[in-house]
Design a protein around this nucleic acid. Structure first.
Lengths: 162, 162
DNA sequence: TATTGTTATACTCTATAACTATA
DNA sequence: TATAGTTATAGAGTATAACAATA
Protein backbone atom coordinates (compact mmCIF):
# COMPACT_ATOMS: atom_id res chain seq x y z
CA UNK A 1 0.00 0.00 0.00
CA UNK A 2 2.19 2.75 1.28
CA UNK A 3 4.87 1.42 -1.01
CA UNK A 4 2.75 2.66 -3.87
CA UNK A 5 3.10 6.31 -3.03
CA UNK A 6 6.64 6.32 -4.29
CA UNK A 7 6.93 9.68 -5.97
CA UNK A 8 6.87 9.39 -9.73
CA UNK A 9 9.86 11.07 -11.30
CA UNK A 10 9.88 12.49 -14.80
CA UNK A 11 11.52 9.36 -16.13
CA UNK A 12 8.40 8.10 -17.74
CA UNK A 13 9.66 5.00 -19.48
CA UNK A 14 12.98 4.33 -17.80
CA UNK A 15 13.50 1.66 -15.16
CA UNK A 16 10.52 -0.52 -14.59
CA UNK A 17 12.20 -3.22 -12.53
CA UNK A 18 12.00 -1.60 -9.14
CA UNK A 19 9.79 -3.05 -6.51
CA UNK A 20 6.82 -0.80 -6.94
CA UNK A 21 7.22 0.27 -10.54
CA UNK A 22 5.95 3.77 -9.90
CA UNK A 23 3.03 4.38 -12.20
CA UNK A 24 2.41 0.80 -13.21
CA UNK A 25 -1.23 0.01 -12.76
CA UNK A 26 -2.59 -3.50 -12.43
CA UNK A 27 -5.65 -3.93 -14.65
CA UNK A 28 -6.65 -6.64 -12.19
CA UNK A 29 -9.85 -8.46 -12.91
CA UNK A 30 -10.53 -6.17 -15.86
CA UNK A 31 -8.07 -8.10 -17.99
CA UNK A 32 -10.16 -11.23 -17.61
CA UNK A 33 -13.08 -9.67 -19.48
CA UNK A 34 -13.24 -9.91 -23.24
CA UNK A 35 -15.38 -6.80 -23.14
CA UNK A 36 -12.44 -4.92 -21.68
CA UNK A 37 -10.22 -5.97 -24.57
CA UNK A 38 -13.02 -5.06 -26.94
CA UNK A 39 -13.44 -1.62 -25.43
CA UNK A 40 -9.73 -0.85 -25.47
CA UNK A 41 -9.38 -1.98 -29.06
CA UNK A 42 -12.49 -0.14 -30.11
CA UNK A 43 -11.32 3.06 -28.45
CA UNK A 44 -7.92 2.80 -30.10
CA UNK A 45 -9.44 2.26 -33.53
CA UNK A 46 -12.09 4.88 -32.99
CA UNK A 47 -9.73 7.69 -32.11
CA UNK A 48 -7.64 6.96 -35.19
CA UNK A 49 -10.86 6.85 -37.18
CA UNK A 50 -11.91 10.27 -35.91
CA UNK A 51 -8.48 11.67 -36.70
CA UNK A 52 -8.57 10.20 -40.20
CA UNK A 53 -11.78 12.09 -41.03
CA UNK A 54 -10.86 15.37 -39.41
CA UNK A 55 -9.21 16.88 -42.49
CA UNK A 56 -12.50 16.46 -44.35
CA UNK A 57 -14.51 18.23 -41.67
CA UNK A 58 -16.43 15.06 -40.92
CA UNK A 59 -17.21 13.50 -37.58
CA UNK A 60 -18.35 9.90 -37.14
CA UNK A 61 -22.01 10.87 -37.02
CA UNK A 62 -21.92 13.17 -40.01
CA UNK A 63 -19.93 10.68 -42.03
CA UNK A 64 -22.29 7.83 -41.21
CA UNK A 65 -25.31 9.90 -42.15
CA UNK A 66 -23.71 11.12 -45.37
CA UNK A 67 -22.64 7.71 -46.57
CA UNK A 68 -26.01 6.17 -45.79
CA UNK A 69 -27.74 8.95 -47.73
CA UNK A 70 -25.36 8.43 -50.65
CA UNK A 71 -26.09 4.71 -50.68
CA UNK A 72 -29.82 5.16 -50.07
CA UNK A 73 -31.00 8.07 -52.21
CA UNK A 74 -34.32 9.58 -51.11
CA UNK A 75 -34.16 8.03 -47.67
CA UNK A 76 -36.34 9.82 -45.11
CA UNK A 77 -35.11 11.30 -41.86
CA UNK A 78 -37.03 8.69 -39.89
CA UNK A 79 -35.43 5.89 -41.85
CA UNK A 80 -32.06 7.52 -41.35
CA UNK A 81 -32.70 7.70 -37.62
CA UNK A 82 -33.34 3.98 -37.57
CA UNK A 83 -30.23 3.28 -39.63
CA UNK A 84 -28.10 5.37 -37.27
CA UNK A 85 -29.86 4.00 -34.21
CA UNK A 86 -30.51 7.47 -32.84
CA UNK A 87 -33.65 9.54 -32.27
CA UNK A 88 -35.27 11.58 -35.03
CA UNK A 89 -34.54 14.77 -33.11
CA UNK A 90 -30.85 14.04 -33.41
CA UNK A 91 -31.12 13.42 -37.11
CA UNK A 92 -32.54 16.90 -37.63
CA UNK A 93 -29.30 18.47 -36.38
CA UNK A 94 -27.08 16.23 -38.50
CA UNK A 95 -29.17 16.78 -41.60
CA UNK A 96 -29.21 20.55 -40.92
CA UNK A 97 -25.44 20.45 -40.78
CA UNK A 98 -25.04 18.45 -43.98
CA UNK A 99 -27.54 20.65 -45.76
CA UNK A 100 -25.84 23.85 -44.59
CA UNK A 101 -22.64 22.49 -46.12
CA UNK A 102 -24.58 21.68 -49.30
CA UNK A 103 -23.54 18.03 -49.10
CA UNK A 104 -27.13 16.83 -49.19
CA UNK A 105 -30.53 18.24 -50.05
CA UNK A 106 -33.98 17.88 -48.53
CA UNK A 107 -36.39 17.14 -51.34
CA UNK A 108 -40.16 16.82 -51.23
CA UNK A 109 -41.67 13.39 -51.47
CA UNK A 110 -44.44 13.15 -54.02
CA UNK A 111 -47.28 11.49 -52.15
CA UNK A 112 -46.30 12.29 -48.58
CA UNK A 113 -45.93 15.93 -47.71
CA UNK A 114 -44.73 15.19 -44.19
CA UNK A 115 -41.48 13.57 -45.16
CA UNK A 116 -38.30 14.69 -46.83
CA UNK A 117 -36.36 12.68 -49.38
CA UNK A 118 -32.69 13.13 -48.59
CA UNK A 119 -30.27 13.08 -51.47
CA UNK A 120 -26.55 13.78 -51.64
CA UNK A 121 -25.24 16.50 -53.90
CA UNK A 122 -22.29 15.98 -56.20
CA UNK A 123 -20.08 17.59 -53.56
CA UNK A 124 -21.57 15.24 -51.01
CA UNK A 125 -20.81 12.18 -53.07
CA UNK A 126 -17.28 13.38 -53.69
CA UNK A 127 -16.70 14.06 -50.03
CA UNK A 128 -18.08 10.65 -49.18
CA UNK A 129 -15.69 9.04 -51.64
CA UNK A 130 -12.75 10.94 -50.19
CA UNK A 131 -13.80 9.84 -46.72
CA UNK A 132 -14.01 6.21 -47.83
CA UNK A 133 -10.49 6.42 -49.15
CA UNK A 134 -9.28 7.98 -45.90
CA UNK A 135 -10.99 5.22 -43.94
CA UNK A 136 -9.43 2.50 -46.10
CA UNK A 137 -6.02 3.94 -45.25
CA UNK A 138 -7.01 4.17 -41.62
CA UNK A 139 -8.04 0.51 -41.57
CA UNK A 140 -4.88 -0.58 -43.34
CA UNK A 141 -2.88 1.33 -40.76
CA UNK A 142 -4.79 0.14 -37.73
CA UNK A 143 -5.26 -3.49 -38.79
CA UNK A 144 -1.81 -3.78 -40.30
CA UNK A 145 -0.64 -6.14 -37.59
CA UNK A 146 -3.18 -8.74 -38.68
CA UNK A 147 -2.92 -10.84 -41.81
CA UNK A 148 -5.74 -10.77 -44.32
CA UNK A 149 -7.08 -14.08 -43.12
CA UNK A 150 -6.90 -12.94 -39.52
CA UNK A 151 -8.90 -9.86 -40.45
CA UNK A 152 -11.46 -12.10 -42.08
CA UNK A 153 -11.61 -14.24 -38.96
CA UNK A 154 -12.08 -11.15 -36.82
CA UNK A 155 -14.88 -9.88 -39.03
CA UNK A 156 -16.52 -13.28 -38.87
CA UNK A 157 -16.35 -13.54 -35.10
CA UNK A 158 -17.65 -10.01 -34.65
CA UNK A 159 -20.58 -10.71 -36.94
CA UNK A 160 -21.45 -13.88 -35.04
CA UNK A 161 -21.75 -12.04 -31.75
CA UNK A 162 -24.63 -9.89 -32.92
CA UNK B 1 -30.95 28.02 -33.60
CA UNK B 2 -29.61 26.36 -36.70
CA UNK B 3 -30.23 28.03 -40.01
CA UNK B 4 -33.39 26.59 -41.35
CA UNK B 5 -33.15 27.65 -44.94
CA UNK B 6 -34.90 24.98 -46.89
CA UNK B 7 -33.48 26.11 -50.16
CA UNK B 8 -33.15 23.44 -52.77
CA UNK B 9 -29.58 22.55 -53.42
CA UNK B 10 -28.53 22.00 -56.98
CA UNK B 11 -27.84 18.47 -58.04
CA UNK B 12 -26.34 17.40 -61.31
CA UNK B 13 -28.65 14.48 -61.69
CA UNK B 14 -32.32 15.13 -61.16
CA UNK B 15 -34.60 12.18 -61.04
CA UNK B 16 -37.36 12.04 -58.46
CA UNK B 17 -39.06 8.89 -59.40
CA UNK B 18 -39.34 5.84 -57.22
CA UNK B 19 -39.17 6.19 -53.48
CA UNK B 20 -38.07 3.04 -51.73
CA UNK B 21 -41.00 2.03 -49.57
CA UNK B 22 -39.56 -1.29 -48.50
CA UNK B 23 -37.95 0.23 -45.42
CA UNK B 24 -34.83 -1.78 -46.12
CA UNK B 25 -31.72 0.28 -45.67
CA UNK B 26 -28.57 -0.58 -47.55
CA UNK B 27 -25.52 -0.27 -45.31
CA UNK B 28 -23.65 0.29 -48.54
CA UNK B 29 -19.93 0.82 -48.28
CA UNK B 30 -20.17 0.77 -44.49
CA UNK B 31 -20.38 -3.00 -44.50
CA UNK B 32 -16.96 -3.21 -46.11
CA UNK B 33 -15.28 -1.70 -43.07
CA UNK B 34 -14.15 -3.90 -40.23
CA UNK B 35 -14.46 -0.84 -38.02
CA UNK B 36 -18.18 -0.77 -38.75
CA UNK B 37 -18.56 -4.38 -37.59
CA UNK B 38 -16.45 -3.54 -34.58
CA UNK B 39 -18.58 -0.55 -33.68
CA UNK B 40 -21.84 -2.43 -34.05
CA UNK B 41 -20.60 -5.33 -31.97
CA UNK B 42 -19.11 -3.04 -29.37
CA UNK B 43 -22.35 -1.08 -29.08
CA UNK B 44 -24.39 -4.26 -28.71
CA UNK B 45 -22.12 -5.60 -26.00
CA UNK B 46 -21.82 -2.25 -24.31
CA UNK B 47 -25.51 -1.66 -23.91
CA UNK B 48 -25.95 -5.12 -22.38
CA UNK B 49 -22.97 -4.35 -20.16
CA UNK B 50 -24.56 -1.12 -18.95
CA UNK B 51 -27.83 -2.92 -18.28
CA UNK B 52 -26.05 -5.67 -16.37
CA UNK B 53 -24.57 -3.16 -13.90
CA UNK B 54 -27.62 -1.00 -13.47
CA UNK B 55 -29.10 -2.96 -10.56
CA UNK B 56 -25.92 -2.25 -8.62
CA UNK B 57 -26.08 1.47 -9.24
CA UNK B 58 -22.88 1.35 -11.24
CA UNK B 59 -22.10 2.90 -14.59
CA UNK B 60 -19.16 1.89 -16.76
CA UNK B 61 -17.00 4.73 -15.48
CA UNK B 62 -17.77 4.21 -11.82
CA UNK B 63 -17.31 0.46 -12.12
CA UNK B 64 -13.95 0.83 -13.87
CA UNK B 65 -12.71 3.28 -11.26
CA UNK B 66 -13.92 1.11 -8.40
CA UNK B 67 -12.38 -2.09 -9.67
CA UNK B 68 -9.06 -0.41 -10.42
CA UNK B 69 -8.98 1.03 -6.91
CA UNK B 70 -9.78 -2.38 -5.45
CA UNK B 71 -6.96 -3.97 -7.43
CA UNK B 72 -4.54 -1.09 -6.82
CA UNK B 73 -4.90 -0.03 -3.21
CA UNK B 74 -3.58 3.47 -2.44
CA UNK B 75 -3.53 4.50 -6.07
CA UNK B 76 -3.59 8.28 -6.56
CA UNK B 77 -6.20 10.19 -8.52
CA UNK B 78 -3.63 11.09 -11.15
CA UNK B 79 -2.67 7.46 -11.60
CA UNK B 80 -6.32 6.57 -11.79
CA UNK B 81 -6.84 9.21 -14.47
CA UNK B 82 -4.11 7.61 -16.55
CA UNK B 83 -5.57 4.15 -16.02
CA UNK B 84 -9.00 5.34 -17.12
CA UNK B 85 -7.54 7.44 -19.93
CA UNK B 86 -9.47 10.52 -18.84
CA UNK B 87 -8.45 13.87 -17.37
CA UNK B 88 -7.83 14.39 -13.67
CA UNK B 89 -10.79 16.74 -13.49
CA UNK B 90 -13.07 13.92 -14.51
CA UNK B 91 -11.63 11.61 -11.90
CA UNK B 92 -12.56 14.08 -9.17
CA UNK B 93 -16.25 13.65 -9.96
CA UNK B 94 -16.08 9.88 -10.08
CA UNK B 95 -14.10 9.66 -6.85
CA UNK B 96 -16.50 12.13 -5.22
CA UNK B 97 -19.35 9.86 -6.21
CA UNK B 98 -17.68 6.68 -4.96
CA UNK B 99 -16.68 8.39 -1.73
CA UNK B 100 -20.19 9.74 -1.17
CA UNK B 101 -21.45 6.19 -1.45
CA UNK B 102 -18.74 5.09 1.00
CA UNK B 103 -17.36 2.60 -1.49
CA UNK B 104 -13.88 4.09 -1.30
CA UNK B 105 -11.98 6.47 0.94
CA UNK B 106 -9.50 9.26 0.28
CA UNK B 107 -6.54 8.72 2.59
CA UNK B 108 -3.55 10.94 3.16
CA UNK B 109 -0.23 9.91 1.74
CA UNK B 110 2.60 10.13 4.26
CA UNK B 111 5.31 12.06 2.48
CA UNK B 112 3.22 13.88 -0.13
CA UNK B 113 0.49 16.08 1.18
CA UNK B 114 -0.79 16.95 -2.28
CA UNK B 115 -1.98 13.47 -3.17
CA UNK B 116 -4.67 11.14 -1.96
CA UNK B 117 -4.31 7.39 -1.57
CA UNK B 118 -7.56 5.84 -2.72
CA UNK B 119 -8.68 2.68 -1.01
CA UNK B 120 -11.89 0.68 -1.30
CA UNK B 121 -14.02 0.08 1.77
CA UNK B 122 -15.40 -3.33 2.60
CA UNK B 123 -18.68 -2.30 0.98
CA UNK B 124 -16.72 -1.20 -2.08
CA UNK B 125 -14.95 -4.53 -2.38
CA UNK B 126 -18.21 -6.37 -1.99
CA UNK B 127 -19.93 -4.27 -4.59
CA UNK B 128 -17.02 -4.78 -6.95
CA UNK B 129 -17.28 -8.54 -6.46
CA UNK B 130 -21.01 -8.46 -7.16
CA UNK B 131 -20.35 -6.43 -10.28
CA UNK B 132 -17.72 -8.89 -11.46
CA UNK B 133 -20.23 -11.69 -11.09
CA UNK B 134 -22.85 -9.71 -13.01
CA UNK B 135 -20.32 -9.05 -15.76
CA UNK B 136 -19.36 -12.72 -15.99
CA UNK B 137 -23.01 -13.52 -16.58
CA UNK B 138 -23.25 -10.71 -19.09
CA UNK B 139 -20.25 -12.03 -21.01
CA UNK B 140 -21.58 -15.58 -20.96
CA UNK B 141 -24.85 -14.27 -22.34
CA UNK B 142 -23.39 -12.02 -24.99
CA UNK B 143 -20.58 -14.30 -26.13
CA UNK B 144 -22.67 -17.44 -25.91
CA UNK B 145 -22.73 -17.87 -29.66
CA UNK B 146 -18.97 -18.35 -29.73
CA UNK B 147 -17.15 -21.46 -28.53
CA UNK B 148 -14.49 -21.15 -25.89
CA UNK B 149 -11.74 -21.43 -28.43
CA UNK B 150 -13.38 -18.84 -30.64
CA UNK B 151 -13.54 -16.48 -27.69
CA UNK B 152 -9.85 -17.08 -27.11
CA UNK B 153 -9.16 -16.34 -30.77
CA UNK B 154 -11.16 -13.15 -30.54
CA UNK B 155 -9.32 -12.02 -27.45
CA UNK B 156 -6.04 -12.78 -29.17
CA UNK B 157 -6.87 -10.85 -32.30
CA UNK B 158 -8.14 -7.86 -30.33
CA UNK B 159 -4.96 -7.78 -28.26
CA UNK B 160 -2.80 -7.88 -31.38
CA UNK B 161 -4.45 -4.79 -32.83
CA UNK B 162 -3.30 -2.54 -30.02
C1' DT C 1 -54.91 8.15 -34.23
C1' DA C 2 -50.35 7.66 -36.09
C1' DT C 3 -46.30 9.46 -38.34
C1' DT C 4 -42.75 13.10 -39.90
C1' DG C 5 -40.10 16.58 -38.81
C1' DT C 6 -39.11 20.05 -35.42
C1' DT C 7 -38.03 22.57 -31.12
C1' DA C 8 -36.81 23.02 -26.36
C1' DT C 9 -34.63 21.04 -22.79
C1' DA C 10 -31.69 18.18 -20.04
C1' DC C 11 -28.35 14.77 -18.96
C1' DT C 12 -23.87 12.29 -19.44
C1' DC C 13 -19.26 12.25 -20.54
C1' DT C 14 -15.28 14.51 -21.38
C1' DA C 15 -12.02 18.42 -22.23
C1' DT C 16 -9.73 22.92 -21.22
C1' DA C 17 -8.14 26.33 -18.31
C1' DA C 18 -7.37 28.58 -14.17
C1' DC C 19 -6.71 28.12 -9.45
C1' DT C 20 -4.59 26.21 -4.46
C1' DA C 21 -1.53 23.86 -1.99
C1' DT C 22 1.99 21.56 -1.97
C1' DA C 23 6.68 19.60 -3.82
C1' DT D 1 8.84 25.17 -11.79
C1' DA D 2 6.25 21.12 -11.56
C1' DT D 3 2.62 18.19 -9.73
C1' DA D 4 -2.04 16.74 -7.30
C1' DG D 5 -6.32 17.90 -6.77
C1' DT D 6 -10.12 21.10 -7.56
C1' DT D 7 -13.48 24.18 -9.77
C1' DA D 8 -15.92 26.38 -13.47
C1' DT D 9 -17.20 26.06 -17.87
C1' DA D 10 -18.04 24.40 -22.44
C1' DG D 11 -18.84 21.19 -26.15
C1' DA D 12 -20.36 16.81 -28.12
C1' DG D 13 -23.80 13.40 -28.37
C1' DT D 14 -27.95 11.70 -27.18
C1' DA D 15 -32.63 11.39 -24.97
C1' DT D 16 -37.39 12.87 -23.75
C1' DA D 17 -41.42 15.40 -24.41
C1' DA D 18 -44.40 18.38 -26.67
C1' DC D 19 -45.99 20.40 -30.90
C1' DA D 20 -47.76 21.41 -36.02
C1' DA D 21 -48.60 19.52 -40.29
C1' DT D 22 -50.02 15.73 -42.60
C1' DA D 23 -51.54 10.92 -43.22
Amino acid sequence: MATKDRKTVMTDKVQVEKIDTSGEIDPGVLSSFIGYAMKRTYMTIHSDFVASLEHLGLRPGTFSALTIIVDNPDISQSQLARALAIERSGVVLIVDHLEDRELIGRHRVPGDRRAYALRATLAGRRLRDAAVEAIRKHEARVLGSLTGSEQATLRNLLARIM
